[in-house]
Amino acid sequence: MIENKALITVNDLTVAYKEKPVLWDIDVEIPKGVLLSVVGPNGAGKTTLIKAMLGLIKPAAGTVSFFGQNYKRVRKKIAYIPQRNSVDWDFPTTVIDVVLMGRYGHLGWFSRPGVTDYELAKKALEKVGMEDFFDRQINQLSGGQQQRIFLARALVQDAEIYFMDEPFVGVDIATEKAIVNLLKLLRSDGKTVIVVHHDLQTLKEYFDWVLLLNVRKIACGPVKKVLTPKNLQLTYGGRTFNIGKDVALNLDLD
């Protein structure tokens, strides 16, 4: 095998619902230790891309490899944080129980979480500033708190790669800042973080890499290099005119 510097390699990935292609021929290489944001308009296939990378959606064609291996062989090194609204927050369970679910993969079949798992879960709750909430019912949490415990659940997985789907939707500013700080901490620990995001305003401030997506890959690389007016025009198409002000703000690149 040829020595490959990329940590994650996506090759010719194509996903279609019925006959309509949602992702078309995506080729991406993501190096270790970046904070990558996947950006694009609604329906660009951002969520589909990470779900396909994690084997949750079967692609029509293409391959994805992590550490040069198939996802199934390295899944313990990969943590996934789904969209907050994808679960029923009225499910009868407590905060600590949800965080403990992050240990289930390490535990494997049948065995139950033990004392060390509880300690790890509590530590993760401390990191997201939710330690006082450990025995709280999850239906009493605000949007920001829900997102924090989802992040804690991923932290106890002790992974190398973190996937997050829209973590900033419907959360308060304090939570958004707290999450960003944690993501930056993860990056400085050498972890790789991939975040589906749609706020162009904060892109430059929060992330160092960006993948511009609109069914096809428009560009992928360091934010400063990739976030050009031309690329944004390509990503958002005719809609650039509608969001002209936003783009203009973001075109304010050094």
Binding site: L56, Y80, S86, Y104, G105, W109
Partner: peptide, 16 residues
């Protein structure tokens, strides 16, 4: 444990 995690968050369970 498996029934619980699948009932609460099936995509997450699947990534585990």
């Amino acid at each position: 444990k498996e029934f619980k995690v699948v009932s609460f968050d099936k995509d997450f369970a699947s990534t585990l």
